[in-house]
């Protein structure tokens, strides 16, 4: 049996968890194993029926009256107890912040290795994995020793596909937990009131790098983004210089964008930046250096000074819209 740790927010499943199930089914088949799921947290039971649609044959509802908001030590301990009781061959979660943390804790608890952000799995006495390094700029082939095999699956690598299970059951599991297991827990959630389109969801992103030169320089990029109904982001050069908040940083240590069009202005095209735009359909680069690496990764290019090109483009779009 392979145990999948499902991630959800108060009963709303995270897509990466469904992707995980799709990948685990293909691992389970040659191993002649079933895929079971562990569910924790508030309103967890509401997603059980959906899991059957995705090939899960048994759901373990790991329950405790204090399992409401996330408490990493307690959740990990709950999982470790479940693993001890049901002895899976492998345990996996989605490679999100939470999934990686939980599985790291399970690994630490059991004294086993954990392979983060896998993209391919090859069954065997030693589990063969391919995993992301450098935020996806590089891949590693590795072997995982020990049992159960512990790993997470990188989000957005496989598309999820439903495949209903033939049998299905739900079982409650009550790990014994103490007060001290809850010393680390979320005590408060703060909703942020953010106006406009969010960077990860934007259909058009206008990005600025060192070439923009200043915080004021970004005002023209803001205007361009507004005209196109998009959002503004930047490179690490822009955030490190405090021209933009860090939440606008695109790349390995920032956000991942997936717009239809990314207009990159004054950005050289470093690997760590480009890995944040992997899901982008088209890239238009504006750069004064015809040798800039971004031109070999872009679909369209304009060579020249962005401080001339962006204002001219804004005027031209306004004219086109007025027609």
């Amino acid at each position: 049996m392979i145990l999948a740790v499902m991630e959800h927010d108060r009963g709303k499943i995270v897509d990466a968890s469904l992707e995980l199930l799709t990948l685990l089914r293909s691992l389970a088949q040659p191993m002649n194993a079933t895929v079971n799921a562990a569910l924790m947290g508030k309103d967890a039971e509401t997603i059980a029926p959906l899991l059957m649609e995705h090939g899960v044959t048994k759901v373990y509802l790991v329950q405790n009256e204090r399992f409401v908001d996330y408490a990493p030590e307690a959740w990990a301990k709950g999982l470790v107890h479940l693993i001890g009781a049901v002895r899976p061959k492998a345990v996996a979660a989605a490679g999100t912040d939470r999934g990686n943390e939980l599985m790291a804790r399970v690994g630490a608890n059991l004294g086993l290795a954990m392979a983060a952000n896998c993209t391919e799995l090859r069954p065997g006495e030693r589990l063969g994995v391919t995993r992301l390094r450098w935020g996806g700029s590089l891949l590693e082939e590795a072997e995982l020793i020990g049992e159960p095999k512990l790993f997470t699956v990188a989000p957005h690598v496989v598309a999820w596909e439903a495949s209903p299970a033939r049998e299905f059951s739900i079982k409650e599991f009550h790990p014994s937990l103490e007060e001290k297991d809850f010393r680390v827990r979320v005590v408060k959630r703060i909703e942020s009131e953010k106006a406009g389109v969010s960077l990860p969801d934007a259909k058009v992103v206008v990005g600025g790098g060192r070439g923009v030169g200043s915080a004021e320089g970004f005002q023209r990029l803001e205007e361009l983004a507004r005209l196109l109904g998009g959002a503004v982001g930047g490179s690490r050069a822009a955030t490190n210089n405090n021209w933009r908040p860090h939440s606008d940083q695109i790349g390995q240590t920032g956000v991942q964008i997936a717009p239809d069009l990314y207009i990159a202005c004054g950005i050289s095209g470093a690997i760590q930046h480009m890995v944040g735009c992997k899901g982008t359909k088209r890239i238009l680069a504006i750069n004064k250096d015809p040798e800039a690496p971004i031109f070999s990764r872009a679909d369209y290019g304009v060579i020249g000074d962005l401080h001339e090109i962006v204002p001219a483009l804004i005027d031209e779009i306004k004219k086109a819209k007025a027609r």
């Binding site: 304009v302 060579i303 001219a312």
Partner: peptide, 11 residues
């Protein structure tokens, strides 16, 4: 890459 032009004339 398809180069659309150079400078502000490319607008």
């Amino acid at each position: 890459v398809e180069i659309l032009g150079q400078g502000k004339e490319a607008a």
